Computed example of a mutant assay.
Amino acid sequence: MLIQVVHSHPVADSYNHALFRTIVETLQRRHEVIATDLYREDFSPAMTEAERRSYYQAAYAEQAVAHLIGHARRADGIIFCFPHWWFSMPAMLKGYFDRVWAPGTAFAHDLKGGRIKPLLTNIRLFGVVTSYGSPWWLTRIVMQDPGRKVLLRALKPMCGAGVRSFYLAHYDMDRSTPASRAAFIERVRARIAQI
C-alpha cells in the first residue's frame, strides 16, 4: 500500500512529532510511505483568492497545492497525526483540508441537489492519531468531541464507501506522565503494525 501520513505540529521535538516518527517508521517496514510534515514543508494554510474564487467553478485553482493533491489522489491510505487544541485540529491542518481536499479532488458538487459526491475513493484506509489536553470525559461527554465528528463524519466520507478507519487518542496530555506517553506510543505502534 501507498500510505500518506500528514503531520501538523510546529515543534520538531514534541511528543506529537514522536508519534509521527513512530507511525512513519512502523509503516515503512511493510508499505511505501509519503511523510508529509506540514510545518517542515512550510505549507501555507491560508486559502488564496484564486482558490476561493474557483471553488465552485469547473476547475479549482490547484497549482499552489498540486503536489499535495497528487499525493491524495495516489494514496491507498491516509493517516493524520496532530494534537487537538481547543477541541479542534490546528489551523495548519484545517488549511490543508480547505486547500487540498477541495472540489475536483475530495468531492464533486451537485449544487442544485445539495449533494456531494466523494472522489477520494482510492483511499481505503483513513486513520487518526491525536492527543487532547483535556481528559476523555470532558472531550467526549461535555464537549461531544467536535474534532472527531469533523474527521469521521465529514472528511472520511470523501473517501467513499467501505473505507476502513481507526481513531487513536491520548487524552489528558496536560497531566500525562512518561509512562502514559510511552504506553500510547506502543499502542500506536501496535495498531500501525497491523496495517
Rank of each mutant, 00 (worst) to 15 (best):
L93E: 03
T130F: 08
Q57H: 07
R40I: 12
D76R: 04
R53I: 14
Q144N: 15
H71G: 05
W85I: 10
L120W: 02
Q63V: 15
L138H: 07
L151I: 15
R40H: 12
Y56G: 10
A154S: 14
F87R: 03
D42Y: 14
S54E: 02
H109C: 13
T139N: 07
P103T: 06
M89E: 01
M92N: 05
F97G: 07
G114S: 08
Q63E: 15
T177Y: 02
F107P: 06
A61W: 03
D172R: 05
A50E: 12
K112I: 15
L38N: 02
Y132V: 11
P146S: 11
A102S: 09
V163W: 00
L38Y: 01
M89K: 01
R40S: 15
A61Y: 00
L68P: 06
V150F: 13
G70Y: 08
P45A: 07
I116S: 10
V142C: 07
V129Y: 01
A59N: 03
R74L: 11
S165V: 10
L152T: 14
P90Q: 03
G127E: 03
A106G: 10
R140M: 15
Y39Q: 03
L111W: 07
S88E: 12
L138N: 05
F87L: 10
S131L: 09
G70H: 10
I141P: 05
T48Y: 03
D172T: 05
A66H: 01
D110N: 11
A161N: 13
S165G: 12
Q63C: 13
I78W: 05
D172Q: 08
A75P: 04
P178I: 11
R53A: 12
T139E: 09
R52Q: 13
F97T: 09
F87T: 08
Y171C: 03
F80M: 10
L111C: 06
G77E: 02
Y56A: 11
L111Y: 09
S134T: 14
Q63K: 14
D76E: 11
L125G: 04
G113F: 09
D172C: 04
D174R: 03
